[in-house]
Amino acid sequence: MDIEELKAKIMEWANKSTKPKFYFKDMGKAAPEVGLREIKKAVTALVQEQKLELWSSGSTSMYGVKGKGLTEEQQMGKHEE
């Protein structure tokens, strides 16, 4: 599958997800026919394009659509009125 097509499928899946953050492996559901190594390339590109963002506790990592759920501003204590 073309990487652009794969990126679009991942973003479609991520935007539909009811969870604000998800594990990498869950993104495999966006294109089950594709291996996780291919998913990783597309996800890495999406992070570079700042469409996806990474959250980490230090021990685990989760991905999320940028701006969905917790934002960088909120975590710094700048809550919107």
Binding site: V47, E53, L54, W55, S56, S57, E72, Q75, M76
Partner: peptide, 19 residues
């Protein structure tokens, strides 16, 4: 707070957000 969205461009590890 538990973790955070923080890091350096191009990397998904190495920085652990503490707020």
């Amino acid at each position: 707070k538990h973790g955070g969205i923080v890091g350096v461009f191009g990397y998904g590890g190495g920085v652990i957000g503490r707020y």
